[in-house]
Nucleic acid binder design. Sequence first.
DNA 1: AAACTAACTGGACACCTGTCCAGGTTTCCG
DNA 2: CGGAAACCTGGACAGGTGTCCAGTTAGTTT
Lengths: 186, 186
Amino acid sequence: MRTEPGAADGRVQRGQERRRLLLAAAVRVIGRGGVAAVTHRAVAAEAGVPKSVATYHFPAVADLLAAALRDSVDAYATALATALPEEYDTADLGRYLAAYLDEHGARCAAEFDLYLYAARNPGLRPLLGRWHGLLAEIAGRFTGDPVAIAAFSAALDGLSLQSLLRAEPLTAAEIQQVVDHVLHRR
Amino acid sequence: MRTEPGAADGRVQRGQERRRLLLAAAVRVIGRGGVAAVTHRAVAAEAGVPKSVATYHFPAVADLLAAALRDSVDAYATALATALPEEYDTADLGRYLAAYLDEHGARCAAEFDLYLYAARNPGLRPLLGRWHGLLAEIAGRFTGDPVAIAAFSAALDGLSLQSLLRAEPLTAAEIQQVVDHVLHRR
DNA sequence: AAACTAACTGGACACCTGTCCAGGTTTCCG
DNA sequence: CGGAAACCTGGACAGGTGTCCAGTTAGTTT
């Protein structure tokens, strides 16, 4: 029987699973030590696989970082889509972001690190279009004003970043207050 | 004649001048390749001095990064203080930030990189208190509302960050629009 | 002028890194 | 069943890195 290109394959399937394992490990490594800490060896050790597995799936370290960025944006988008109810208000948003910052601070730091990495590698910037599109779509649920959307998007990025520098992460109430303010809802 | 401790000294003076030279070089290196690119050798080469000069003034690379962070915040604060008139409005603010992002994008990227570095090294966080104080002070000129101040601070950070990812940096008008919006001035 | 000391320097060391590679294993297709 | 293909692996190599150090220079003080 003929298999379509990219169809199910025991080898390929296990390979791609290991690939995902490596990318998850990479994000943890970045969260701990920044993009600088990403090496084939460190990521492989974090994933609990031999070093060569990393060099096989990602011949160069840059490939690993690019894939981690893509994967990271994807993961955030899907997580957001499944965690928020169909109809949500700014309180839901505040709760979700606060929980994310509290539980996954390292992951959030990793995302910003990859963000800056993309800023210095223009070839990667298109990958972030989806991220900004997501922010704009969320803001679009509350307002049609393009300036308000831009302000919302900037404020969310800024809030997340500032949260990383505080001893205690931001609370849901703090986030909601700022979001409501930015959306002119008070 | 007796010299006070820390008084003018030919050796010390030249030494501190060279120290500043190294820190400026470090920021350029970070702007180009991120914190990861900071090595004694790379910074010394960028500054045009022998490698040992860097290791003498900053025994460990971590010392170099900490000093670069402190220096960077200081430089930004003084630059802002001298570039803005005594009384300024949001248009002045937009113009200043737009010019900064346009001319010193790499430096701005370096600041965010150090920002994240500090997030992962809690001992450095106090150095950023001055930065946030500065933002709060600026916002305080336009409003007394603490939520508006927080929103302003987050939006400025977010705007700067997003500007780094665009093909063309943000314009003064775009920045002013968002700032006015966040300050509820329209 | 002599002692003192901060600043400077090149070199050395062990360690870690990216990348490549030749060979091995498992799975799948014809 | 046989070959192809994707995966996996340990090792090797050259090159870059942090850090230390003994020795030198040149202001400053006494």
